[in-house]
């Protein structure tokens, strides 16, 4: 049941001269939620951004090693980054809807990738995406009002709707709840639980409790190294490595 979806092999990454990831080996299972935890600056975001090649935009950033998505190397020269990003969607730390209407926010990616024409096809697609992100009920009467006028939690769910509108396989989330209140956080967590039936989800979180609540597997990073990776239950009750233990019990630094 745990088929591997993303397979990272000896991934090293440099920002200019400084090495941010020192050879990461990790496998993310399909349709499961994996939480990446670790102290600030340990390279979680960096690793996450490798998975949809957002790091390509950073000057001086170069990688070594392999990242296989369903067995294909995503850094192979023939890979089209645009196509890759429709397979690997991303949700960011701060909700960042486009300053356009709610409808436009969701319809944008399907339109530029030619997934639906503009008539009823698109309406349907937008509705489905909003429903799956469990925000349809809240916005169905104001689809043409600005997405930026929603509350933070709603904005984040809108961003998730926007991401799943192109039917990705993998969804990357970089601290998706860090700007939200507990209720909105709970809604997103519930949503993630729903979404994992269809998507492979990899999320960075600084909340140990959150990682414990929603992830199936947890990976602990420290200073650019993967220290420990395993089932969430195990990591949070009896981690193998002292560093992991120290980190999750709050004995760090």
């Amino acid at each position: 049941m745990n088929t591997s979806k993303v397979n990272i092999k000896d991934l090293k990454l440099w920002y200019g001269e400084s090495e941010a990831l020192h050879g990461i080996d990790i496998e993310f299972s399909e349709k499961r939620v994996t939480a990446l935890i670790g102290p600030s600056g340990c390279g979680k975001s960096t690793l996450l951004r490798c998975l949809n090649r957002m790091n390509d935009r950073i000057p001086g950033c170069r990688i070594e090693g392999q990242i296989l998505l369903d067995g294909d190397d995503i850094y192979a020269p023939e890979v089209d980054v645009v196509q890759l990003r429709t397979h690997v969607g991303m949700v960011f730390q701060k909700p960042n809807p486009f300053p356009k209407s709610i409808y436009e926010n969701v319809a944008y990616a399907p339109r530029i990738h030619g997934l639906a024409g503009s008539g009823s096809d698109m309406d349907e697609l937008v509705e489905t995406a909003l429903r799956r992100a469990s925000i349809w009920k809240e916005v169905k009467d104001k689809l043409h009002t600005p997405g930026t006028a929603l509350s933070g939690g709603q904005q984040q769910r809108l961003c998730i709707a926007r991401t799943i509108a192109v039917q990705p396989n993998v969804i990357l989330m970089d601290e998706p709840c860090s700007a939200l209140d507990p209720i909105a956080t709970a809604k997103i967590e519930e949503l993630i639980d729903e979404l994992k039936r269809e998507f492979t989800i990899i999320m960075v979180t600084h909340s140990m409790q959150q990682a414990a609540r929603i992830s199936d597997q947890t990976a602990f990073f420290y200073m650019g190294d993967l220290i420990e990776f395993g089932e969430t239950g195990t990591i949070f009750t009896q981690p193998e490595k002292q560093q992991t233990e120290d980190y999750i019990t709050g004995r760090f630094g």
């Binding site: 140990m208 409790q209 414990a212 990591i235 949070f236 009896q238 992991t244 233990e245 999750i248 019990t249």
Partner: peptide, 10 residues
Amino acid sequence: RRQPAAGDLR
């Protein structure tokens, strides 16, 4: 108050 984990939890 502390939501202990790992060793603390045990």
